[in-house]
Design a protein around this nucleic acid. Structure first.
Length: 218
DNA sequence: GTCCAGGGCCTAC
DNA sequence: GTAGGCCATGGA
């Protein structure tokens, strides 16, 4: 079995990533983190384009926008009613509790910020960690469905671990380095999109020698 | 027509 | 505490 870092090194040899989470500002990352929940990124891009086209990708503007208007702008991302409500609630929270300052929200003790984010409607552990890692530049690894499936198939997980168990496992074994955390997570998602869901398995898969899934479909 | 995607919340048991 | 249902669009 490979270690977590050996898996990373193998992924590095297979993919060259550039600007994996495309965003022109930390706030755009946050909006994307809400919109991407259980949604294909292509649909998120449509919603983000709508917001940019309306010149509405701005925290105070979203905070004050009529909810129905926000719903229509983000409609392509799916679950648009609840996402609009939660996104607007987040913007109003930052205005009311951090004077509209994103830096203020994301500065301080990592665990305290994470708890604060998790207490907000529509922010679960994955969204909180995405905001921390990609918008805040804080070392908080993101465990998504890809990560679970991928590490599970490589024998690094038993399948019974909860979100925080996996995150703690990772962060205990990998030095807290933001670019490394971002790159590793992006590599997992890229790899899984590339071949983890293909049946039969992609012939160029980097892990055919050790992957459970590869053994199943072989 | 069916499946799935860069989740989270609520309810019932 | 946890399994199941719900939220919704768009591409493959």
């Amino acid at each position: 079995m490979l270690t977590i870092m050996e898996v990373y090194q193998r992924l590095c040899r297979g993919y060259c990533l550039d600007n994996w989470w495309p965003a022109q500002s930390p706030f755009e990352v946050v909006v994307g983190a809400f919109l991407t929940q259980n949604t294909n990124w292509n649909n998120v891009e449509k919603a983000l384009a709508n917001l940019k086209g309306a010149k509405a990708l701005d925290l105070p503007l979203l905070a004050d926008m009529p909810l129905a208007q926000l719903e229509q702008l983000i409609r392509p991302s799916g679950f648009f009613r609840q996402k609009a409500q939660r996104l607007q609630h987040f913007c109003r929270y930052v205005q009311d509790h951090h004077a509209g300052s994103f830096d203020s929200l994301l500065t301080g003790d990592l665990n305290d910020i994470r708890s604060e984010l998790l207490a907000l409607a529509g922010i679960g552990p994955e969204t909180a960690d995405s905001i921390l890692l990609y918008a805040g530049g804080r070392p908080s690894f993101v465990i998504d469905s890809y990560t679970r499936r991928f590490w599970g198939r490589l024998g690094l997980l038993t399948g019974t671990e909860k979100y925080d168990d996996i995150r703690t496992l990772f962060m205990a074994k990998v030095e807290k380095d933001v670019p490394l955390y971002q790159h590793y997570h992006a590599l997992i998602v890229t790899h899984c999109k590339e071949c983890c869901r293909k049946t039969p398995l992609c012939s160029t898969c980097l892990f055919t020698d050790i992957c459970d899934y590869a053994a199943q479909v072989a």
